[in-house]
Design a protein around this nucleic acid. Structure first.
Lengths: 256, 256
DNA sequence: GTATGATTCAAACGGTCGTTTGAATTGCTT
DNA sequence: AAGCAATTCAAACGACCGTTTGAATCATAC
């Protein structure tokens, strides 16, 4: 337990935020374990004990970092989804639109250098690979609402897809994205191209959205025979609610 | 420095392998940092100092784990690719075939419970999210040959795709896969479906390959105008080398 | 059976970690 | 100016970490 906090006065707020910012940097760079409170408080130029005074513990600090960033991020996601649904007037959305509403805010945040959002995004990618229960619970509670909303939207947009298959494909999409935003420079594994730092997040968006849309709308594993068969183009123009029917002909939803 | 090793006699080999096996288990479960040598040697029922006697250090132990597993894994990958190329007799391969050759061995290994391969696969997924230079160099040196071979094969199979775009899409694919094999039960983030432990790796393969193939062969970001436009089905039957041409019509390779 | 090298063992070393403590300092209110 | 809570600070605590050491034990060859 530590003293109850009143509305911060003076530069106590500065101390808190300096800790949060430095923690974001070092956690993103070295991970939650390797970044020590000593290194962190030294970078923030505050006393070691300030972390426990203002947050209570190291995991509480981690929690605070996520709360500060994830709330507006998810609000933006849901806001974009709301806007899409308002514009659609009851008709299903396009997979591409839903994907952009989900991953767009992340990629835009990763572009926002001055607010330090890009550092948090790296941190978020790192958290996805964590196995400590406390971190996983953190992510889970932060994601539960937004994932459910987007899952439902995708379910409506892809009426031909079984729930289970949809869950897996969302899983694959999240994996591709978290790998990208983790920014462990794993592209280096692929080739010697210096694609990494030089890319603008907008261009990453342009690259990954078609990839994800195509994967999401790929033919079901056991629909038809050939591995290379694909569903027909799902052309969708505004005001034509039957647009998703093209795929529905050859992919049937299976009972859960 | 520690004594030079001679062909192990008696159950010294057992000690070495017990360490390797327990290390695999605990590293996969808790990560490289959180799994201590003390916990590891206790699980293996060997003395703490045995790690340094047989391996020299903790990172050398990690290296040994990867060498033991990664060599046969990559050999299998290259073997499958060789077989495909032999059968194709100079013609380009199908993206699906290449993807299966690359990810199939991984998923099959993750199914191999008795040899403990599934634990290593989780470990491999974990290593992909590591940022420590020593781990990244490990992966890089292990991947460089096999990635170059597969990159070249994909480049031939997708003549319409710029190298840079291909590098990114391989990156996305690796991300989706590493997320899956890391097995951090992140599907739990998606939904309450109990897809996780119950799935056989073969069925995961059936699910992820179409996803990856579709993503890999998706239309290029700035080809055409609409976000939802897709390239035509890339039907490919054996012995018809022009099968990839359908896509080539609308996607043009850009100079690097 | 005794010498010799390989292996195991208990114990300790030096270091870093998250956390706690209690006093010093600051900033605001009366 | 005094009082008091909020905040900062240096120092230490106890635990755990990877690593090292040197002696004990084992297996094998002579």
């Amino acid at each position: 337990m530590h003293p109850k906090k009143y509305p911060p006065s003076g530069d106590s707020l500065n101390t808190r935020e300096r800790i949060l910012n430095s923690a974001e940097v070092l956690f993103a760079e070295h991970g939650f374990e390797r970044a020590s409170l000593r290194a962190l408080t030294a970078a923030a130029q505050v006393n070691l004990a300030a972390v426990h005074y203002h947050f209570g513990s190291k995991v509480a600090l981690i929690r605070a970092i996520f709360e500060r960033r994830l709330a507006p991020l998810n609000a933006e996601r849901l806001g974009e989804l709301d806007a899409l649904e308002d514009a659609a007037r009851g008709r299903p959305l396009t997979p591409a639109g839903i994907i952009e509403a989900f991953f767009g805010p992340v990629l835009r945040m990763s572009m926002n250098l001055e607010s330090g959002g890009h550092r948090f995004i790296r941190l978020l990618g790192r958290a996805h690979a964590e196995s400590r229960p406390v971190i996983r619970e953190l992510l889970e509670s932060a994601y539960v609402e937004v994932v459910e909303r987007f899952r439902a939207a995708l379910y409506r947009a892809l009426p031909q897809m079984p729930e289970k298959e949809l869950a897996w494909r969302m899983h694959f999409m999240l994996g591709a994205m978290s790998y990208v935003i983790a920014g462990t420079d794993a592209v280096q594994l692929i080739a010697s191209y210096e694609v990494r730092k030089s890319e603008h997040p907008e261009s990453v968006m342009k690259r990954i959205v078609p990839f994800l849309v195509a994967g999401l709308t790929a033919p079901l594993p056991d629909a038809g025979t050939a591995k290379t068969r694909r569903i027909e183009p799902q052309i969708r123009t505004r005001g034509e609610p039957r647009s998703a029917r093209g795929a529905e002909r050859r992919i049937e939803r299976k009972a859960a």
